[in-house]
Amino acid sequence: MMILHRVYISPDKVIVNGKALELTEKGSALLTQIYRSHIGNYPKFFKMDTLCKLGFVASELLLNAEGNRNFEPREDRAVILFNRSASLQADTNYQSTIQDSENFFPSPAAFVYTLPNIVTGEIAIRNKYFGETSFIVIEENDEKLIEQNLSVAFQDTDTKSIIGGWLDCTDEENFEANIFLMEK
């Protein structure tokens, strides 16, 4: 297995293939800044929860680094992400819409994101990936364990490459992405 490209995002740092991007914002504002300066033209971004925003911009930077984006349907690329906090930030956000019986309006848009794997689906929709998608919750960002889990995904002979790695978010200002594009 070989890692071709890697993207790291924390609330105050963005690194693509070892090179830091020069951005000024911090926290969730940083994600919006990445969107505006490097992506754009995908207004659905603003509807996403923080985990999805993080996964979306990280995967965009990763795929821009790969280059030659054509958005043609493909099934040879899997999206398999890992974290510790599942959908905690979205859970809290949705819970606030059902907490008060006097002001009880469960939000469908907020509920949807209480599923951590929505982010793998969003990446697949954006890039028309019809291959495997999965989301796995583990104790900590253990790259050895992650690679072990990804290596077994290549058992599926259709799968030639994987967008994989760590994608965690506890609230709007605390998150970490360390994702990579890997080939068999």
Binding site: N117, T120, S134, F135, I136, V137, I138, S151, V152, Q155
Partner: peptide
């Protein structure tokens, strides 16, 4: 101990992950 979280297909994907591990000899 690993947790799979892919909404209503979670358990099916847990089965798939386990099967792949056995196939790999892990």
């Amino acid at each position: 101990v690993t947790t799979l979280s892919t909404a209503c297909s979670s358990a099916a994907n847990a089965i798939i992950l386990g099967a792949n591990m056995i196939r790999c000899g892990e």
